[in-house]
């Protein structure tokens, strides 16, 4: 159906035609949106690394273990002989790097991980004045404004509007009107990644799954009851593949915890749409080369 200015109105029936509305939670993809071309040729590598020692008996994170996990993941991701070489493949000394973190108070990006990222960038030769770690004020941050590269790092959690708070969702602060992306389970989040000040800059995506939130309640969408010590990081240059991998783990955890099929609600449509509509990466498992490292118990994928 055409609407004003020939814009096509997307309706529920478009989803019913392909049966994909019910299946959206399984990330099979959206209807009517032709697959974008950029990501179809190759599989995306995703490294899932876990180490049970990263979370101590007291619940505190072990920063040294976390840093080691990061290095191992990046090295494996890039088929590099050592971490230094791996980081050198991603960044150059003259890069200006914005590290898009997440400060949501119940489950923020661990400071130890931010520190490790800054340290590794420094080792590559990036100047300290050319590195910024920021979340809500990125649009006003001078480093982000002149950035040549971005690192995207955030914890995985369920989310009221988008189903999941993902790497894709983490860039919503790059726009001045985030609420404009809340419709239809935030399905259009991929559009943000196409904006000129974002497009093509992201070199590394780190989905933090140390203690992910697999279900939310109440206005704050949070309860410690629904955190679990998964002790993992999901690392990729492809944000869609990393998110899709994380989504499968969350989905499996929900089914296990609730002892029934309990799909993520609302369905995280934006992950599949980022693949099929915006061409940002690969969402389907058959186009993801998943490398599992470390602790294997209860891996759920």
């Amino acid at each position: 159906m055409q609407h004003r200015n020939n814009k096509r109105v997307i309706t529920r029936r478009d989803f019913l035609k392909t049966g994909s509305y019910a299946a959206a939670g399984s990330l099979v993809g959206l209807p009517l949106l032709r697959r974008a071309s950029a990501q179809t040729s190759a599989k995306s590598r995703v490294v899932l690394i876990r180490d049970r020692e990263v979370i101590g008996q007291d619940g505190n994170l072990n920063g040294h273990v976390l840093e080691s996990m990061l290095d191992r993941a990046v090295t494996a991701l890039l088929d590099a002989p050592d971490p230094k070489t791996a980081w050198g493949k991603l960044f150059r000394p003259n890069d200006v790097v914005g590290i898009k973190t997440n400060v949501w108070s119940p489950l923020p990006t661990p400071e130890a991980l931010e520190t490790a990222l800054v340290f590794r960038l420094g080792q590559v030769g990036v100047k300290s004045g050319s590195i910024a770690v920021e979340d809500r004020d990125i649009r006003d941050n001078p480093v982000f404004m002149r950035s040549t590269a971005l690192i995207n790092v955030r914890p995985m959690r369920t989310h009221h509007w988008s189903g999941l708070g993902t790497l894709l969702k983490n860039y919503i602060m790059f726009v001045s009107a985030p609420w404009m992306y809340h419709g239809n389970s935030c399905e259009r989040l991929g559009a943000i990644w196409k904006k000129p000040h974002v497009n093509g800059k992201t070199r590394l995506n780190i989905l933090v799954m140390l203690t992910p939130l697999f279900h939310g309640i109440g206005p704050h969408h949070f309860s410690r009851r629904y955190l679990w010590p998964y002790a993992g990081l999901v690392v990729s240059t492809d944000p869609v593949a990393a998110d899709a991998t994380g989504a499968r783990i969350i989905g499996a955890k929900r089914n296990e915890f609730f002892d029934s099929h309990r799909p993520i609600s609302p369905p995280p449509l934006h992950i599949a749409a980022a693949d099929t509509r915006f061409g940002l990466g690969n969402a389907s498992a058959d186009r993801i080369d998943l490398v599992r490292l470390g602790w294997g118990e209860q891996i759920l994928i």
Partner: peptide
């Protein structure tokens, strides 16, 4: 509000 309707039952991407 359409955003609430769409949360419970998605119908349109516009406020038809």
């Amino acid at each position: 509000h359409p955003i609430v309707l769409n949360y419970h039952y998605y119908l349109f991407d516009e406020n038809i």
